[in-house]
Amino acid sequence: MSIDKDTVAKIANLARIEVSEKELESTVGELNNILDWVEQLSEVDTDGVEAMTSVVEASLPRREDKVTDGGYRDSVLKNAPQAEHGFFAVPKVIE
């Protein structure tokens, strides 16, 4: 599998990462190298082998249904570029 410049530009846009025209070229090469490398794994026959989700025997940890967190609005808003009346304030996004 290999990807072209348009695909990289599209992925960059979806991920909201700015990639300049100049960077695009080299990024295409780098990403294709990674893909080629991962592709080598397909040489191994994995028919009938169940997907492994963890290298150690582990199950999904669970929480009790108790309120144990929240209630610190100032901390939550602290790093926001702009906050007003307890809300995050962002440039108007309206459909």
């Binding site: 669970r62 929480r63 009790e64 967190d69 209630g71 609005r73 901390s75 808003l77 809300f87 995050f88």
Partner: peptide, 30 residues
């Protein structure tokens, strides 16, 4: 572990997980 009750003051029922601060991990509510 943040609360779900309706009608609270804005952003008072928000944890670092639900505001997606770096390094936070989700743990499922059984």
């Amino acid at each position: 572990g943040a609360a779900t009750a309706f009608g609270a003051e804005p952003n008072t029922q928000v944890s670092f997980v639900c505001s997606a601060q770096p390094g936070m991990l989700p743990v499922i509510n059984e």
